[in-house]
Amino acid sequence: MEAPLVEVKNLKKYFPKNKGLFGGKKFFVKAVDDVSFTIKKGETLGLVGESGCGKSTTGRMLMRLLDPTEGQILFEGNEISSLNDNQIRDIRKEFQMVFQDPYASLNPRMKVSDIIAEPLIVHGYPKEKREERVQHLLEVVGLNAYHADRFPHEFSGGQRQRIGIARALAVNPKLIVADEPVSALDVSIQSQILNLLKDLQEEFNLTYLFIAHDLSVVEHISDRVGVMYLGKIVELADKDNLYKEPLHPYTKALLSAVPVPNPRLKRERIILTGDIPSPSNPPSGCTFHTRCPFAMEECKKVVPQLKEISDRHFVSCHLY
């Protein structure tokens, strides 16, 4: 079997928080708590979950924009979680990121050409070929070469996201971490960007980690999907398995909660009670037991492990 492009093992991120003005007792927000997964070359792994579930933190750690508290990240078999800043800068051209907010992630004082050329400069792309490369990239993402001299404010949300994608592609990365790349866009523009991401993947043999809260979008773009809840992956499976036969009660509830654009379809809906608990004080045992319709005594005490139930279908639940 081919070695995976990315392998994440027992990744944890605890953000320390001081209670009270004078230090007092230190406690931790467990944003990501023991997450493991692999991404094969050329595939798209989707991470879904609601706000605060740790999906973005996971993506940022993969990019090494955040240092993991514990655990390993292997990129092409090389450990990157322990590299220092200089070493990471060299290797970062292999993985790039597309951000959620196309308004905040582009410097308003820089021209589009400078924004896209910046990673080229950082990674030592020959100066004389730079302009050509920028123009080529603009065309690849569906913009025009004459857009190069404009500033970000002259573009619409969808066009800005294209600029962000061009910047990510500039250094020929192998992996792109896309953190909610379409959630800030209008419906008719979302599909344009999703199609573009799919085309680029084919053309450049890219691997995606696609982070989103919209289950329909994730289903459309991913090969495999991981569902996160309170810092943990609760279910991870091939897309078809996960959407057809969700096993974890949380995945079931999540899927049934998505409004479907078909007025004739009246589905049985699992309405979860209550809110998502705070990650600074997660429930004991299975973190989902406070909202789970099938919670048993065991769930309150023992933390379930992610187990392979059927072929490549992992679930962490005491029911299985």
């Binding site: 969808g158 999703l194 199609n195 979008v217 057809k244 899927l255 998505v258």
Partner: peptide, 26 residues
């Protein structure tokens, strides 16, 4: 029509989404 076709739907298998070209006019 364009709006309806451009939304990805749960359980629907398409390789590409139909999309409305261009941008919303300012």
């Amino acid at each position: 029509e364009g709006l309806l076709y451009s939304v990805p739907k749960l359980g629907q298998k398409v390789d590409r989404l139909d999309s409305i070209p261009g941008n919303v006019p300012t």
